[in-house]
């Protein structure tokens, strides 16, 4: 089962839509609720990151019997220093993002904590791709 969602940078009204849809699908499939929570928290944080930092992006969600693979591909500024970006408390978010309740440098660490596997590919000036895997 494969889903695809487009995300626009700066559009906070839609941030979380993909996570919400994936949550509904996983519930229908009878996936354990604690696993669903890990999936949607990781996906929601990653989705907010695209809205907060990138110009646009696409989310691909592949649901298999053994787990879910999420791929978030964005066109944006990229991450110059992944180690710093993964450090709790480090953030380059704008005041507008902070007003939305995010931008405290918790997003990527939160994604990492909920994922069984997280791979970040990034190119400065071009964009970032997150590959997240969570087993059922």
């Amino acid at each position: 089962m494969r889903f695809e969602y487009k995300v626009e940078g700066g559009d906070f009204t839609q941030a979380g839509y993909a996570a919400s849809q994936v949550k509904k699908s996983l519930k229908q499939l009878g996936v354990d609720s604690s696993v669903i929570k890990r999936v949607v928290v990781a996906l929601y944080e990653a989705e907010v990151n695209i809205v907060a930092h990138a110009y646009r992006g696409v989310i691909y969600a592949d649901i298999e019997s053994s787990g879910i693979k999420l791929k978030l591909v964005d066109e944006g500024p990229g991450i110059p220093d992944i180690t710093r970006a993964m450090t709790k408390g480090f953030s380059t978010a704008s005041p507008a993002v902070r007003e939305m309740g995010f931008g405290a440098g918790m997003g990527l660490p939160n994604i990492s904590e909920n994922a069984d596997s997280l791979l970040i590919e990034t190119e400065v000036g071009k964009g970032t791709t997150l590959n997240i895997e969570i087993r059922f």
Binding site: A15, G16, S20, K37, E45, V48, F102, A104, G107, E113
Partner: peptide, 30 residues
């Protein structure tokens, strides 16, 4: 801080907040 709320492993709790926007509802949902 919604990212802080999203670190909570427990579910079925009351979220007390002063943040009135669409993301506070989304965070409650997630």
């Amino acid at each position: 801080l919604m990212s802080d709320v999203l670190t909570i492993k427990k579910d079925h709790f009351l979220l007390i907040t002063g943040l009135a926007n669409i993301q506070s509802i989304r965070t409650a949902e997630m």
